[in-house]
């Protein structure tokens, strides 16, 4: 009996804070629900960061979360190649083309546009801060209307684990470990987990800032 209120509190806490919600305009969300898309065309990513590899890295992370959300996701590599063959190798050209034209070409209900705004690692002696900032937008394949947008920024600072013994010796050892971890992160910043987290944060908070589950979302429950 005593446990019930605590459990209830936890459930409420979970609902309230499990995923931080931000309000988005209802009208946009209503449009999304009215459009009830089944398929999402993911077009090549526009890169506004200083890292030239960011766009392709980001692109490769997008299919999984959207498919798991319950949508048909077009084959991202095949789409990219076909667009390149059509003279649209520059992703900013793709992004500026009318959505309805693109959607028509592939038979897609909606198109997802992603822009990498920040993708870098800043080295500061004892720690390296890796930052990924992404802008997402879904537009209607018939009306060109914006059905959803979101902006997510993820920051990662590697934790060397700490622990260590007390005393000055221990502290010195910790500092060395931290410096090594920071240097390693700098040498090869681990963007992929951050990008995946950004996607999850952007898409899965629903109701809220994410997107509604797609038509295949219910199929899983039977398994």
């Amino acid at each position: 009996m005593k446990r019930t209120p605590l459990f209830l509190l936890l459930v409420i806490f979970l609902i309230l804070s499990g995923c931080a919600h931000r309000e988005i305009k209802l009208s946009t969300q209503e449009k999304f629900l009215a459009a009830a898309p089944r398929s999402i065309l993911i077009v090549p990513v526009v890169n506004n960061s200083v890292d030239i590899t960011a766009a392709d890295y980001m692109l490769s992370t997008l299919a999984i979360p959207l498919a798991e959300r319950g949508y048909y996701v077009f084959p991202i590599n095949a789409v990219k190649r076909v667009l390149e063959d059509d003279g649209l190798a520059d992703s900013s050209l793709v992004h500026s083309a009318p959505t309805s034209k693109l959607a028509n070409l592939f038979g897609a209900d909606v198109v997802l546009y992603v822009i990498v705004e920040q993708w870098d690692a800043k080295y500061a002696v004892l720690t390296t801060t890796t930052t990924v900032a992404i802008y997402y937008q879904i537009r209607d394949g018939k009306t060109d209307d914006v059905l959803w947008e979101n902006r997510v920024k993820m920051v990662y600072q590697p934790d060397s684990g700490g622990g260590g013994g007390g005393g000055l010796g221990g502290l010195a050892a910790q500092l060395v470990v931290k410096a090594v971890v920071a240097a390693m992160e700098k040498a090869s910043p681990n963007y992929m987990p951050l990008a995946r987290k950004a996607n999850a944060n952007a898409l899965f908070h629903y109701p809220g800032t994410g997107i509604p589950p797609g038509p295949y979302a219910n199929v899983e429950k039977k398994n």
Binding site: G18, C19, S60, T61, A63, I64, P65, A67, E68, R69, G70, M192, R196, A200, N201, L203, F204, H205, Y216, V219, E220
Partner: peptide
């Protein structure tokens, strides 16, 4: 946040 496991991706990304 996000149910995974609807499909088997085998490291697609």
């Amino acid at each position: 946040c996000g149910a995974h496991g609807r499909y088997q991706w085998s490291g697609y990304d």
